[in-house]
Design a binder for these strands. Structure first.
Lengths: 134, 134
DNA sequence: GTTGTATTTTACCAATGAGTTATTTAACCA
DNA sequence: TGGTTAAATAACTCATTGGTAAAATACAAC
């Protein structure tokens, strides 16, 4: 029930049981009892997890007689991946280069204290479009 | 307090305020009041969010007199990104599958124009009823 | 020292989340 | 019909979360 899609996606992924379910569905579609079998918890608990995943758009449920086959719909993960990808430089970039950037900022601010700092290199064009502060 | 790191990371990201804070920190380190200023919530609320981010390893907090400067530590995002990346093919192939499906429909309709279109591949039974494990 | 500023901590609250058992719905089979 | 299986729903418990206001802590400046 989170308003924005990204929040719903991350919240759905913030549970090891649900991530394991997605991992199982990556191998192919599966029924609820099949998905539940590896876990110690009861079937209604799995049913709840599936509902969370469905509301986040991560799975789709069909109907086959009394079975409710679940299928993976990884599309929301694309948005999550591209959000995270904005920060890729922060773990890929060498420490020296980040340090050099910060020192450059400090140098520029020492030169022209009234001027606003430039944005970080990789964050100028792809600002997050959602979750802006009120 | 989630046991595994991936759960803590996704849980920390499942909040628009926290994601916005990370977005702000991507531009450079910042103090708590600076980070809080765009939001209408109180300072202790921001302090709690920062604690969540810190426990997830997404930020580091230093000390500068009475200020507690926060810095982005995007390393946990690398693990999150690589987990999500397992599913990349599932969203990259979706267009191909849809295209293949549409072409198949056109082919069948060209053969037997009066016949009803089959259901989308997603939820059709792959085999008649007795292919279920028992 | 006292005062002021930055931040955290301490209760406290309402809402949500994850789990349970028990019941209900839906579909098949005999 | 009735019986069985698959799955969802209902109703409940308990822990966690996100927010608040108020008090406490840490430091700087006077």
């Amino acid at each position: 029930m989170p308003a924005d899609k990204l929040t719903a996606t991350f919240a759905a992924l913030a549970d090891p049981t649900r991530r394991a379910i997605l991992g199982q569905l990556a191998k192919g579609q599966s029924t609820v009892t099949e998905l539940a079998s590896p876990f110690k918890m009861t079937l209604p608990a799995i049913s709840k997890h599936l509902k969370v995943l469905e509301k986040a758009g991560l799975i789709e449920r069909g109907r086959d007689a009394q079975w409710r086959p679940c299928r993976l719909k990884a599309k929301p993960l694309e948005e999550a991946a591209s959000w995270i990808d904005q920060y890729r430089q922060f773990w890929e970039e060498s420490f020296d280069r980040l340090d050099a950037y910060l020192q450059e900022i400090q140098r520029q601010e020492a030169e022209t204290p009234a001027a606003p700092s430039p944005a970080a290199p990789a964050f100028t064009r792809s600002e997050p479009t959602d979750d802006r502060p009120q």
